[in-house]
Amino acid sequence: MAFFEVTDLHKSFGNKEVLKGVSLTLDKGQIMAVIGDSGNGKTTFLRCLNFLTEADTGTISINGETIFDANIPLKPSELRKKRMKMGLVFQSYNLFPQYTVLKNTYLAANLLVKEEASAYAKTLTNASLSEKRRLVSDFKKKRKAENVENAKQLIGSMGLDDESDKYPCQLSGGQSQRAAIARALMLSPEILCFDEPTSALDPKLTAEVLNVIKALKEEGRTMIVVTHEMSFAASCADKIVFFRDGKVVEQGGPEILTDPETADLKDFLQLNKE
């Protein structure tokens, strides 16, 4: 069984069918590049993977664990736990403007500390009430400090040490996107998805962000990247998936970009060259 597996994903908006049965697999530590013209379901596919859009039918599983099954509705708390296995970096960054880069990064992890603490409190069966309270409060402090340290490290690895205390409005596009990547990595998702991460950036900043994605690949992260950067797809992706009209028309290694089998992909690559 593949590390990541999507089977028969369907999604309609009204009577417009946007995803018409998407199935694919991805191995651990690989990059999948999702290509295709706009309006062919790539973004909807990515949104379904992150539960921002709920697929009508189909399943998604990671490491043998089903994280989504259209037939089995989840409670909000379960859904939240499962969706954290996936990370998503948006085209427009969506950083929280009122917080610094550092707080953007650690916020979600720190908000989870409360739940961690109540789970921890349950393990303290022998402690007296006052002792319990002290232990839980120490636990919270420790976890929060760890999160901040962890966030600082991630920010450093994104080359943003000097920007750590800046607000999103003070960052360049490339810095914003790298901050958004740090934020997404904070919860250690099994799979990190990127929705056209460079389409708002000029070539220099694009290179900056793509280099970060390459570096993450070196670390062994599994990633799915919706992209229009064919050179990036050709040089970095282990797997290329070509979407047309809500379906995966062709998939394979990077060689399909030079030697496409289907007329549709040939057609798409021809137009992108011009």
């Binding site: 939240r80 948006f90 908000l111």
Partner: peptide
């Protein structure tokens, strides 16, 4: 407040309450 702020909060696993009080309300 843009939809993107809600979506970013959702993928980071924030609850509805956390999203409102930590993300939306300050803005």
């Amino acid at each position: 407040v843009s939809q993107g702020q809600y979506e970013a909060s959702a993928v980071l696993g924030l609850t509805k309450g956390q999203t409102f009080f930590h993300i939306v309300l300050p803005q």
